[in-house]
Write a protein that binds this DNA or RNA. Sequence first.
DNA 1: CCTGGTTGGGAA
Length: 879
Amino acid sequence: MAFIRQAPLLRCLPLVVLCVLTPTLIQTIHQDAMFTASMICHYEAEQKKADCSDRGLDSIPQNLPDDIKVLDVTRNNITFILSTSFQRYPLIQVLDLSLNDIRMIESESFYPLKELNHLILSFNPNLVLPATDLFRGSKNLSTLDLIQCNLKLLPNDTLKWSPSVENINLMINRLTFVNMSLCGRLSFVDLSSNEIEHLTAESFIFGCQSDYIDLSRNPIKSVDPNVIASLSARSLSFGSYPLSLEVLKDIYSGICRSEKVGLAIIYSNFTVLPLDFFRNCSLTFLTLSGNGIQSLSPYVFSNLTRLVELHLSQNNIVTVEPIFFQGMRELKVLNLDNNKIKYINPNSDVWALDLNVLYLCTNSLTEISEFAFLGLRNLTLLDLRFNKDLIVLNITSFSELTEIQTIDLNQCSMSTFHPVAPNLTTLSMNNMNIPSTYTTPRIFLKDSQGIKDLEIRKSSLSTADIWDKTVNVSLFDGLSKLITLDLSDNSFDIRFPDIFPARIFEQLAALQKLGLETCHISGLHPLAFSGLESLRVLNLRGNMIQQLNFEIFKMLDQVTIINLDGNLLTYLDEQLFSNNPRLTTLLLSNNRFTRLNQTTFEPIKSSLLSLDFSLNPFSCNCDIRWFRDWMSGHIFVIDEDKTLCSLASLEPLRGKPLLNFDTSKLCGLNVVLVCLTPLAGIIVVVIVVVLYHNRWQLKQKLFLFKLMAIGYKEMRDARDYKDYEFDLNIIFYDDDEEWVRQQLRPALEERLPQFQRNVFGDQDLIPGMHYLDAVDYVVSHSYKTLILLSRAAVHDRWFMLKIRTAMDHVSDTETEFVVVVFLEDIPDEEIPFLARLYLSDGRPYLHWTEDVRGHDFFWNKLVKNLTINLRTNDLIPNE
DNA sequence: CCTGGTTGGGAA
């Protein structure tokens, strides 16, 4: 009964509440799902990237932010991609689906992804691509990775809709044939490690414009030269599989029927190059690496007249003669790395080549004669690294290597080297295996003075090799263009520890970087670095330096980095860095410092950015509190966790990081500081009180001082006498009327004839007006008011009332229109308050004198006072 | 394409 009586609205209430709540509820659930998804997938908001890799997912998560650009779902258990999978994420650009087991992709799956640029489907071992239109919506597809998917078939129209794909990687699949006729541009196609046996019109259809096709690691058994010729690719690569000579000939034949520029046949057991193999061809790049070629024949490459680069690395060539390359007019780069070359140009023939770069590294050369490179006048780079038995390289003026810029002799065994190479800029002789029996200098650079970069690391150099003490000549003399010099890992002064030569680098005015790392240096002459006026970086790491002379770095005013890690230093002189204003990095880790001198670092405190003092046995006590405070400032402390306090430190600090040193806590309060602080406080208070007490006087003095220094500007009233009803209003006591008549009137008539509308005393006041009103009226309507004071006048109350009226008006108008004239001396005690006030405010007044000689002066001054009206300036003190 | 030196590798 109760229900029946309820109002209809009330009865529907639960329903209404449900209706209101449901969307909210759904939203909440949705948000929870989002939250869960973002827990599962790591979302990087900045890149709009969702990382869902390795999350055990079996489908594409649908609860990610819908504006993601990158979606990574690698290493999951996804087996299918549906047309709805990516509908929520139309902005995806990069999609990584690798390492799943995708077996089925609905052909419309990627349609929503209009922005798709990079798709990775690699390592889905059972992948089957839909037969048509998979990338119909993917106009921007640039990279498609399909590595190791056991693909047997790539649908022909896979790339039909993507006009400019950069890369398609199909390596490690099971393709036996290729049918890619429907595509536009395609820069790089990797078909390596497939099962393609026949490059014939039936099984290899490829119509894409491409730069490079890699067909290596395919068991190619037959090749139709016409198929090769018709490929629209600039460069082809074959190999990593033994190919028959027949196949190789057909490949080459096809290449030469087209305009292809590059061919690589690598690791194909192409051991013998038949003399007639390289028939006339427009090829530009040829690589025949790793084929076990043992020898070359005269003229074998002669038909390759347009070849620019020839790579013959990783073969077994023993002898190199110019005649092999006869006629290669365009050849610029010849790579003979990793062969067994023992002889180069043994007959001293002339190379008829215009070679720029010659790689000969990792061979078996022992001696190279001065005529070995005869004719290679434009050779700029000669790489001879890893010829471990190379002991003789003669580059003389007969060698004609006039353009040589870079010579690399790392890991050789040169016992002597004296290049005559005026354009040599880079010389590397690292890790040279030099016999230790030599005691005289074996390297001479005086005929290669253009060197900019010289490296002789770890080459058993001794002091004698770089400094001839009999004639005081350095190996580096004359190298005025040298910018970097690396002499690290040599043993300069094991036998002569105290005499690292003084002027060894003196002529290296351009040197910016000097490496002397681990050179067994135990002492440096104070002038060791003299002349290094451009040096930026000095590396002395890992030596045995115990002391540094206070002038050692004095010449290095450009130096920014000094590395002294791993030496035996205990002390740094106060003057050490006094001339290194650009020093930013100072590395002194692993030395023997127990304490440091604050003064030492004053000159570089403002320039220094980072500092390494780790692995030093610091005695952390109150002496180095400044250092600890400095370290905790703006400077970057390298390895601060290894900057520790030694056992000789204050008890709680032993073995702890120096930065844990709480100086204020452990060093207590300084006695002097304790005494001085309250004293200073008291002094401050006293000064403040005194200053406050005398603030007005001080202000006044300050103001006067200011006036004295800069003066002040007078402000005139803009109005002149014509703007007023009266020109002059003269207020005087009746007794003084005679003076007015006899002195004032005639003087005014004479000196101020323009003042005609004057009010002389009470008799000229406006008739009929109340007396005081009349006084006020005249005062406020006169250009000037003249008040004549006398002893009698100041005692008259009416007179003083008139003065007051005038004064008030001065205040009101802030105009200096009142002039007071003392007609006689008035004793101080008789001067009324108002008059005193007037005078103390610095208002204009004059003093009448009976002396006739003073009259002229008086009238002149009066006239001047009566003809200008200044604004009152109460700031200006009385004179 | 890329590098490196034992020799094709690359992506699992």
